[in-house]
Simulated scan of single mutants.
Amino acid sequence: MRIFLAYLILLAVFSQVPSVSATTQGHGNVHILGSIIDTPCGISSESRYQSVDLSTLPVSTIINDGAGPSKPFRISLSDCLLPGVLNSSNSGVKFSITFNGKKSEHSLFSVEGEGSGVGIEITDKAGNVAEPGKAMPAYTLEPDSMDLEFNMRLKANERAINPGDYQSTISFKMDYY
């Protein structure tokens, strides 16, 4: 009788195992991160991470012209709360933009790779040149201009020019006031 009772208890325990493990399947955790910021504008998701291809450029162009052709890029703003939109005030929001990256000669942004003797120059549509780590002149946001337009080009930096692939990473930040 004891063996039979022990057998029934073991059978009851083992018959419950599959249902116990089945109830623990199919769950997990989702960790959510974020922040709420107090700025007049956001930066659109397309503008946060961009790649600008300065294409293939012959060494002779850099030697003869000192630089390659300019390539445009833009930073698009979104969800802006401008004073002129919310009330009758005509004063726009002022901001500055700072481009950060490794500095080369003549305040150019440096490049890495086989290609050398050049740096990257960034200018705004007024012709102001960005220097690594320094804020550009102040801009005023207006309701009809939510795209900030810039140009980028390869420029000689007084070192020997070597052909080859190159790359650079340049970040930017905006300060409102």
Results as ranks from 00 to 15, higher is better:
residue 68 G to Q: 01
residue 44 S to H: 10
residue 131 E to D: 00
residue 58 P to H: 15
residue 41 C to L: 05
residue 147 D to E: 10
residue 134 K to G: 02
residue 93 V to S: 09
residue 123 T to S: 07
residue 81 L to F: 11
residue 119 G to W: 00
residue 119 G to Y: 00
residue 156 A to E: 09
residue 15 S to K: 11
residue 81 L to I: 12
residue 69 P to T: 02
residue 71 K to L: 05
residue 171 S to G: 06
residue 47 S to L: 05
residue 157 N to I: 02
residue 135 A to K: 08
residue 61 T to S: 12
residue 124 D to R: 06
residue 38 D to M: 08
residue 59 V to A: 11
residue 85 V to K: 15
residue 105 E to K: 00
residue 74 R to N: 07
residue 175 D to I: 10
residue 19 S to F: 15
residue 109 F to P: 00
residue 103 K to A: 11
residue 171 S to V: 03
residue 112 E to L: 06
residue 134 K to M: 08
residue 53 D to G: 06
residue 147 D to C: 02
residue 57 L to F: 05
residue 135 A to E: 12
residue 105 E to L: 10
residue 60 S to H: 11
residue 29 N to A: 09
residue 167 Q to G: 11
residue 93 V to K: 10
residue 154 L to W: 02
residue 6 A to N: 08
residue 51 S to K: 04
residue 122 I to T: 00
residue 9 I to H: 09
residue 2 R to E: 11
residue 117 G to V: 03
residue 172 F to H: 03
residue 165 D to P: 05
residue 80 C to D: 00
residue 81 L to D: 08
residue 159 R to A: 05
residue 169 T to G: 04
residue 162 N to S: 14
residue 30 V to Q: 13
residue 125 K to G: 02
residue 138 A to I: 15
residue 125 K to F: 09
residue 149 E to N: 09
residue 41 C to D: 00
residue 100 N to Q: 15
residue 173 K to L: 10
residue 128 N to P: 01
residue 131 E to L: 13
residue 136 M to H: 07
residue 78 S to T: 10
residue 30 V to N: 15
residue 146 M to L: 12
residue 144 D to F: 09
residue 12 A to L: 14
residue 5 L to S: 08
residue 84 G to T: 10
residue 47 S to I: 02
residue 118 V to Q: 01
residue 24 T to A: 10
residue 59 V to G: 06
residue 26 G to S: 07
residue 106 H to Q: 15
residue 29 N to Q: 13
residue 9 I to W: 09
residue 108 L to N: 02
residue 90 N to L: 11
residue 176 Y to F: 11
residue 169 T to I: 14
residue 93 V to M: 05
residue 114 E to I: 04
residue 139 Y to E: 04
residue 102 K to T: 11
residue 45 S to D: 04
residue 86 L to I: 10
residue 53 D to S: 12
residue 120 I to A: 00
residue 48 R to G: 03
residue 118 V to A: 01
residue 162 N to I: 14
residue 82 L to H: 02
residue 15 S to W: 09
residue 132 P to W: 08
residue 150 F to C: 01
residue 41 C to F: 04
residue 128 N to Q: 06
residue 99 F to N: 01
residue 159 R to Y: 14
residue 102 K to N: 09
residue 7 Y to Q: 08
